[in-house]
Design a protein around this nucleic acid. Structure first.
Lengths: 237, 237
DNA sequence: GATTGACAGAATGTCTGACAATTTCTCACG
DNA sequence: CGTGAGAAATTGTCAGACATTCTGTCAATC
């Protein structure tokens, strides 16, 4: 008797999370409870509970008597998120370098190896997974679950952007070099170096992402004039 | 026509938050939905929504089919929270020193002045408010709402401990000196100094708090032997 | 013609009552 | 004294209903 039933509410959460991440529900879109009931086949109370959880995660915004809408992210908010990410991921790398076990360092090297494989032209698609795995090892080894949970929360917020448009291709090689530097510093048991490499990586990513976001906001601000269909911009990391 | 109605669910949240913070609901205690209905006079759906929100805040833990319990905090988790607080509050102080307006610096000085008044023997009771006000100014001026919201979340988690036992008296003077140092560095527009002073403050507080917590856990681990009624320990900050 | 006002529709906030599924407690039994 | 089966308690979920509040339309007025 396989247990696929992980609480209807939770299933609804996952469903909505994926729908938002995949762009099926666009940013700013209104979510009507009744429609979600029909869409998922569950009743309103369960839907509402799920919506509360997603609101707490920052994935949707609920204003009283106006209902939930898919959260959108502005350039200023993104800047702030990247600033916090730099702090926390830098700390994670530093602490990993300081007190990870040799076995954990081995895991990190393996994860990086997988990541490199995933970047090769053929095997695209699992790149996001490989990156997640790498960071999973890093966060597990830094001995701070709080950092991991906060970062997870921030990640879902920026992911709202990401799925709409995947990582920029031309940034990938640079990104890999930066990550390799983090790994190198960690293997050398150099906490400060690892932190700085990690921060540098995030700051680079932030620069690209914020640039893209800023353009998008400008485009959105003046829609009637220039119909110049720009090639779809991509956000990194 | 005064508007006291801020969504029943929200009122329930506040009620539970206060009940937990004030120790009316002790850590680890089971919260039964039906009882909360009778206690608050609202129906189960609303109660459940409120519980989901509190769970997301980390104030309660809900395990499937076993119901919600008031979250407790261990010494290891506390250590991690303090580590993150040091990072974020240090960043906030640094950024405040870097780019707060003169007016905001004035507000911070005023808030510190209020804080000093609140520490004087007579006017206890508003000390927590004064401290909150000081940090409110700091977080408003650092230009990063994300930092503020994450810190708010962490704060509610450690507050579960705090209300059980207030700030240690003998630590208060030291604490004020540390905070004054933060202010001094900020007024001097010294970002690095402000960050370091802020981190030092948190680390001192953490040391005391973790010490207290560790004792408490040891006491709890062997209750039958020594009935030595230790003077109630207090947690700082 | 544009602005304003009222009205109808829609959507949320909330309640009641109920039932299924699961956990936990109790108590008799080996 | 441990163990297992049954009963009670609790959570998970549903359906339907009603009050309150927002939204958009249409008519009346300036």
């Amino acid at each position: 008797m396989p247990r696929e039933s992980a609480s209807l509410r939770h299933q609804v959460e996952d469903f909505l999370r994926k729908a938002i991440a995949s762009g099926q529900f666009q940013a700013g879109q209104k979510l009507i409870e009744r429609e979600l009931c029909e869409l998922t086949g569950v009743s309103r109370p369960s839907i509402r509970e799920a919506l509360r959880c997603l609101e707490a995660e920052g994935l949707i915004v609920i204003v009283p008597h106006r209902g939930p809408t898919v959260a959108s992210i502005g350039v200023e908010e993104a800047r702030q998120i990247y600033a916090v990410r730099a702090l926390l991921e830098g700390y994670a790398a530093q602490e990993f370098a300081r007190l990870a076990t040799p076995e954990q360092i081995g895991q990190l090297e393996a994860a990086f190896s997988d990541l490199e494989k995933a970047t090769r032209p053929r095997s695209r698609g699992s790149l996001a997974d490989a990156k997640a795995a790498f960071y999973g090892v890093l966060l597990a080894g830094c001995r701070n679950d709080i950092v991991a949970s906060v970062l997870a929360g921030l990640h879902t917020r920026v992911n709202v952007l990401r799925m709409t448009s995947m990582s920029r291709k031309d940034r990938l090689p640079t990104s890999m070099i930066e990550i390799r530097e983090i790994l190198t510093r960690i293997v050398a048991r150099d906490p400060d170096g690892a932190r700085e490499a990690s921060i540098a990586h995030i700051e680079h990513a932030a620069r690209v992402a914020l640039d893209v976001l800023a353009r998008r906001e400008i485009d959105a601000a003046l829609p009637p004039t220039t119909k110049t269909r720009r090639a779809p911009r991509r956000t990194p990391d």
